[in-house]
Design a protein around this nucleic acid. Structure first.
Lengths: 363, 363
DNA sequence: CTGAAAGCGCTTACAG
DNA sequence: CTGAAAGCGCTTACAG
């Protein structure tokens, strides 16, 4: 968990002020407000809801009391009474990944705009599947009105029991259950875009890092699409199989060797991270990019990417988040009338400094 | 919001299967379980709580019924009855930033380990201060038992009214209210570490990008600490004032000019991002790093950083998250007896390929 | 070991 | 426009 040796060091502690500043008071309740404003609970509730007509003077008194007491309505009680939490849950896979971070941020923005209250739960990454189930339970226990699932491991079978209870939108994951509305990336198109860009630069002998689908479905889809397109266009494909999710340096070395042997003039990766790893290793071993080999990645999210100049395909996270929230809004309004679909959005190619024409044949 | 032109494009839609697979059923309630198991609600509750003794046979019947009905206890009702939500809220600033992403992930891990149920709310970034207040309300409305605040903008005055109601731990932000327990980074030490590293490499004429404290308190603290240490050690400091939060290319160009003029041999940045920007610009304009100028950043979080080889100071996010959760656990157990402190953790220096000895004096 | 009942803090017909 | 009362789905003394 904590591999930072400094963590063990005693922290600098600055004892401050006194103990708890105030007496620990009970949170004021609607009854307190009612009493303080000399009205009934019902009236306070009405003022809060802003729906029914309330005379100005009572309204004022109630508002004052609320302010004075620092009253915050208890949503638990509200939702119990109304049978609706007003909350939309987000099951998020891994906040450390830039793509998920951006997705989280975007979903949040759009939800806010649409007046959906988003609350996020992250399954602890250990014990992936059971953790995701527990996180799911947490959200369902909160009786969220809707659920965004942006996480890979949880299977349709876990989701199925709840589909009839709460609208679920699967976000940014390629595979989707028939009973679940899906909004995701068009990974096949992305693969084709990457392939086409390499072809356009004149490459014909191309390595592709092909992640096993057991490791990552999206990565595998991308790689397969790249290879299919290249073959279709008559290029020669040199697949390099990756069977680990982590970035394995061996792949990068293997590919560097292929460059030196003159077997390939370009290489495509299913993620920017993997491409970056290759770039680092290639440069260290004296290869020039793009003079000796052209490189393209996929994702386009990391802010560092632009500075490095890596060519890539930018996945349309913003569009996906936007659409997912719209769909959720629709589902919440007229649940049964919306036919379930799986929508896929495509991003755009980002040309970069890692792309050039193939080097002349070495003699 | 959505600056991706592809977003407008019609998505590929794959209509799937049928409409909603099942009839929309009401979520089963504890009463349903009780009836199905022919016991009272109280007994179901006891089985769920696992506290009181229940005969094996009833227990079995209840468990069966729960499974059969797919019963998930309504936490809203539970917390209303127990006056405790069992939830700890996290107010998170910006999920897009790698440092926050990692913090989020770590807090999640540790909370899980400590059996705290973490739920996260992100203030929509627009209208910073009021959005944060709304997000705060959302969490308080949920009657969280504790609150992590990992966001800069919200002021002590907004927090104050709730301090007596719910334990608050401020995480990773340097300034902290006297009434709030703080666990953060020792930015002063970090600044000194960066300064010392440059000095150790023999540099004496050093530029420091100094962010205004109105822009970012942590950045400003770091920069001030770097400069103070350098001066203390007899080096010549060339401050470059930054007054925007975004990365301004002008600063990088200015610093590059100072290198060419021979004014400085090294430069320190208060964030890796800013350092990266300089690296990019410096290299484009023909400067060699570290041959012409040494560079150090601060943060050490982005995965790309290692590949680039940027020297930096790695902030101890893991240690801070770990400690923050421990503190929260203590506060939840024996609230009044824990004196409020502000603890600061220090990270460690990461030497990198962007550091070298000062170039010989140009003639 | 088990059940009846009160109560948690709200909302919402139903009557004025 | 306003209040009394029932009910949302649980938990927890209090009695058996």
């Amino acid at each position: 968990m904590n591999d930072n040796p400094a963590a063990i060091e005693r922290p600098t502690a600055y004892p401050t002020a006194a103990e708890s500043p105030k007496v620990v008071g009970q949170t004021p309740t609607m009854d307190d407000v009612a009493r303080s404003a000399s009205v009934s609970r019902a009236t306070v509730s009405r003022v809060l809801a802003g729906t029914a007509r309330v005379s100005d003077s009572t309204q004022d008194r109630v508002l004052r009391a609320i302010k004075d007491l620092g009253y915050v309505p208890n949503r638990m009680a509200q939702s119990l009474a109304t049978r609706s939490s007003g909350l939309v849950g987000l099951l998020l896979r891994d906040p450390r990944k830039a793509a998920y971070g951006l997705l989280h941020s975007e979903l949040q923005q759009v939800s806010d705009r649409e007046n959906l209250q988003l609350i996020t739960v992250v399954p602890s990454s250990s014990e992936a599947s059971s953790a995701e189930k527990r996180a799911l339970q947490r959200l369902l226990g909160l009786r969220v009105d809707g659920l965004f699932v942006a996480t890979g491991v949880i299977g349709p079978e876990d989701l199925a029991p709840f589909l009839s209870v709460v609208p679920v939108v699967s976000v940014g994951r390629p595979e989707a259950h028939d009973g679940v509305y899906g909004v995701s990336y068009d990974e096949v198109a992305h693969g084709q875009m990457a392939a086409d860009l390499l072809l356009r630069h004149g490459h014909r002998d191309i390595a592709v890092l092909a992640t096993a689908s057991s490791v990552s479905v999206p990565e595998s889809m991308r790689a397969e699409a790249i290879m299919a397109r290249l073959l279709e266009r008559g290029a020669t494909v040199h697949p390099v199989r990756a069977t680990t999710f982590g970035i394995g340096a061996e792949h990068s070395h293997r590919i560097a060797d292929m460059v030196r042997e003159g077997t390939i003039t370009a290489v495509a990766f299913p993620t920017d991270d993997r491409a970056l790893d290759f770039l680092t290793i290639a440069r260290k071993s004296g290869l020039q990019v793009p003079a000796d080999v052209s490189v393209i990645g996929m994702d386009g999210i990391s802010p560092a990417m632009g500075m490095i100049g890596l060519a890539t395909v930018r996945i349309p996270i913003e569009a996906v988040a936007d659409r997912a929230v719209t769909v959720m809004g629709d589902l919440l309004e007229h649940r049964e009338s919306l036919p379930i679909r799986h929508e896929r959005f495509r991003g755009h190619v980002v040309d970069g400094a890692t792309l050039g024409p193939p080097p002349r044949k070495r003699s």
